[in-house]
Design a protein around this nucleic acid. Structure first.
Lengths: 343, 343
DNA sequence: AGGACAATTTAAAGCGCTTTAAGTCTTGGT
DNA sequence: ACCAAGACTTAAAGCGCTTTAAATTGTCCT
C-alpha cells in the first residue's frame, strides 16, 4: 500500500531496463548480451536470437553514457552550427548521413546571440565528442589550433591561413570568378560588386571579383561598393547606384541576402532585371530559389563538403592521419533568371 | 626514445585530465574536488580556492558521461527540431536560455529527409534526456502518449486531442481570427483563405477563418482554396483567383511561404498589393520581414512558448507534477505593409 | 576412450564521476 | 583536561556498460 506515493509517477517500478535485465531474462551473462547487441562475432546463433528477442520485448535501449564511459569511445562527432543558417541546416543534413555510414553519431551545439563559439565548443567537449566539426567558425586561427590539441578540429567553409588543422571549404574566389566569366560571356563590362564586410570569406570573394575583372581586361571597371551580409546593405548599395547618371549593366553581391536587397531596390525604382541590369548572388539560399526572385547564384555543394568533413574526421580518429589536410572544392554556378545580355 | 611513435599523435601523454588529477595536484580527495566543482556547500574556503585554481591550471573539464552515470541524472532536455525551420531555430534559441536559467542543458536531434521522428527521439533517449521537448511533432497522439511513459514529453506548437501529455502552443484559430478582424475593420468583405493541407495546424487555422467570417456575418463569403505549405501552392491559388472576373479584396494564406506565392503571382499579374488586394500570411517568418515583401502576418511568440516548454519540463522533473497541462498562448498580429482598405 | 583444439560463455576489472556514511579535526564549554 | 558539537574530509560503493583473460563446453581425431 505504501507505493501510493510512487504510483503518482509514471515509470515508477519499471525503470529503464538495463543490460542485466535482458541477461536475466535470457539466462546468460551481461557480457554475452553486450556482444550480441553490438554485433561482435562470438555468440552462437541461438544465443543471438534469444537475446535479440528479449531486448525487443523489454524495450531495451543502450545507455550511451555508460557505453561511452566503458569503451572509452563516444563515437560522437561534435558539430557547431548556426541554427539560423539555412546553409548550415543543409550541411547538417548531409553530415548526418555521412556520419551514419561510418558508424558515428552527431551531437549539435548551436550558436545564438547569447551563446558564443567558446561555449558551444565546450558543450561539445563535455559530451566527449571525438572530433569537432565547426561550421563557419570565426575564432582566430590560433584559438582553433589550440582547440585542435584537445580533439581533432575540422573547420568547414572558411579559409584558415597556414592551417595546422583540417579545412574543408569551397574556393570563394573561384565562385565569384565564375560569375564574372558568365557575365562577361554575355557581353557585360560595367560589373560592380557589393562587398560583404570584413571577414575571411568576404575578402576571398572580393579578391575573386577583382582578379576575374583584371583577367578579362576590365581592371578599369572594377568598382566595389561597401556592404555587409544583409538585405539592407544590398538595398543601400543599389540606391547609391541609382543616384548615378548611368547604371552599371550588372551587379554582383556578396551573398543572396544582399543580392535580394539590390533586386528589391532596383525593381522598386522601375529598373528591369535582367532587362536593364543583371544581378547575381552567392550561396544558393532557399531565398534565391523563390520564384519571385529566381536569382542566379553560386552553390557551395553542401553534400560534398559534409562528406569531406566526416572523412577528414574519420581519418584522424581511425586511421591516425596527423598531417593537416585542406580540401578546397569548386563551387558551382547556378543559372537562374536574373542574368541576361546587357541592354 | 620509444615515444617516437606516440609523439606522432597530439594529445599523447597528457590525455584529458580527470577529477583524480586535480585532486592529486591539490592533495585532497576526489570527493572534495567534486564537491567544490559542483558548488556544493561543505568544503572550506581554502580548499575551494586551491581546487578551483588547480582545475583551471590543468584545464579540467567535467566529463558529462561520467557524472550522468554516477548521479543518475543527466540534467538534459532532449529537443527534437526540424533544422530547416526558421521558427524552430528561434524556439531553440530561447529554449537554450530558458533551460540554462534552471540548470538544464539541451541536446538537439534533428529531423531530416532520412531521419524520422522515431529515430530522432531514440537518439534523445540514448543520451538519457530527462524530458523530451518535441517541436511540431507529427506522430499520432497515442504514439506520443506511449513515449511519455519513458520520459515526460512536451509537445510544442501543435494541438493534441485529449492530450495525456503536456502541450504548449498558440491558438491558431484565434490568430487567423485576428487577421479576419483586422481586415473586416478595414472594410473588407470578400476575404478568401488559401488552405494549408491536412494536419492539425491547418485544420485549426481553417476553422479560425470560418468562425471569424461567420462571426462578422460574412458566412456567405467564406471561400477556401486548396493549398499546402509551399510558395508554389500560393502561386497556384492566386492564379486560380486571377481567372475569375472579379478578384476578392483580401487573401489570407495558411503561412508566410504560401502568402508570398500569392503575392508573387498577383504582382506579376499587375495587381497592386495592398492597393487592390490585401494579403496576409502566418508565422512571422524571416521571409515576411524582407522589405520587398513586408508582409502582414501573425507571430507565434517563440520566446514565450520556449519558456513555457522548459517550465513544463521542470515541473515534471523537479516538482513531480503528474497532471498533464496544456498552455495555449495568444498569437500576435504583426501589421506590415500588405494590408489596407479595400479599393 | 582420451586429448587437442575450436567454439562459446562469463567473471571481473574498470571507465570517471557522485554520494553517503564514517571518519578526523577543531572549538568551546565546563 | 575532557567531551560534545560542529566543520571538514574522505573511503568506498556504485552508475550501466565494455573488454579481456580465463573457464567451460563441444567436436573431431586417432
Amino acid at each position: 500500500m505504501d507505493d501510493g506515493g510512487s504510483m503518482r509517477h509514471r515509470n515508477s517500478g519499471h525503470k529503464r531496463p538495463r543490460l542485466e535485465d535482458v541477461a536475466a531474462q535470457v539466462g546468460v551473462s551481461t557480457a554475452s548480451v553486450s556482444l550480441v547487441l553490438r554485433g561482435v562475432p562470438g555468440p552462437s546463433e541461438r544465443t543471438r536470437q534469444r537475446v535479440l528477442k528479449a531486448a525487443a520485448d523489454l524495450g531495451y535501449q543502450v545507455d550511451r553514457t555508460a557505453s561511452t564511459l566503458a569503451s572509452r569511445r563516444s563515437r560522437l562527432l561534435g558539430v557547431m552550427v548556426d541554427i539560423h543558417s539555412p546553409f548550415h541546416a543543409e550541411l547538417v543534413e548531409h553530415l548526418h548521413t555521412a556520419a551514419e555510414e561510418v558508424g558515428y553519431d552527431l551531437v549539435l551545439s548551436t550558436l545564438t546571440r547569447t551563446r558564443d563559439e567558446q561555449t558551444a565548443v565546450e558543450t561539445l567537449l563535455a559530451f566527449r565528442s571525438e572530433a569537432l566539426i565547426l561550421l563557419g567558425p570565426i575564432s582566430p586561427a590560433d584559438t582553433l589550433a589550440a582547440l585542435d590539441n584537445k580533439a581533432p578540429v575540422i573547420a568547414v567553409g572558411r579559409r584558415i591561413a597556414d592551417a595546422a588543422l583540417d579545412v574543408v571549404r569551397t574556393a570563394d574566389d573561384d565562385g565569384v570568378g565564375q560569375i564574372v566569366d558568365h557575365l562577361v560571356g554575355f557581353g557585360h563590362r560595367e560589373i560592380v560588386y557589393v562587398d560583404g564586410g570584413k571577414g575571411v570569406i568576404a575578402t576571398d570573394r572580393r579578391r575573386g571579383y577583382r582578379t576575374a575583372m583584371r583577367r578579362h581586361g576590365l581592371g578599369e571597371h572594377i568598382r566595389v561598393l561597401t556592404g555587409d551580409q544583409t538585405e539592407a546593405a544590398g538595398e543601400h548599395a543599389a540606391r547609391h547606384l541609382l543616384r548615378d547618371p548611368q547604371l552599371p549593366t550588372a551587379v554582383v553581391a556578396f551573398n543572396d541576402q544582399s543580392a535580394i536587397g539590390v533586386l528589391t531596390a532596383l525593381t522598386r525604382a522601375g529598373v528591369a532585371v535582367p532587362g536593364q541590369v543583371s544581378v547575381v548572388g552567392y550561396d544558393d539560399d532557399t531565398l534565391s530559389r523563390l520564384s519571385c526572385f529566381n536569382l542566379t547564384t553560386v552553390s557551395q555543394n553542401a553534400q560534398e563538403q559534409a562528406r569531406h568533413a566526416v572523412t577528414a574526421a574519420v581519418e584522424r580518429l581511425d586511421q591516425d592521419r596527423t598531417e593537416p589536410r585542406e580540401v578546397v572544392l569548386t563551387p558551382r554556378l547556378v543559372l537562374r533568371g536574373t542574368t541576361a545580355e546587357p541592354a
